[in-house]
Amino acid sequence: MTSPHTDPVPPRGDRSPLYWLLLVPVVVPLLVPLFNADDPRLFGFPRFYWLQLAFIILGVGTTTLVYQLTKRRG
């Protein structure tokens, strides 16, 4: 990323709006109606099990994205 600023000191703090994205993988895995069902099955797994395992990907994806996008801010 190129910055139009010449100031070499990056702004400190954890106030980036991107951090609000972290709420997504906290809230979604707690929404029981999303996953509390048998159908559809995937590889023999009921939805309850495969979807909750899939939320791991949501968590990893979001934290990785936020980390990469906010790296320079320290």
Partner: peptide
């Protein structure tokens, strides 16, 4: 499982 998923973004 959800416990150890939500802990990290939190």
């Amino acid at each position: 499982l959800p416990y150890t998923v939500i802990i990290y973004p939190m």
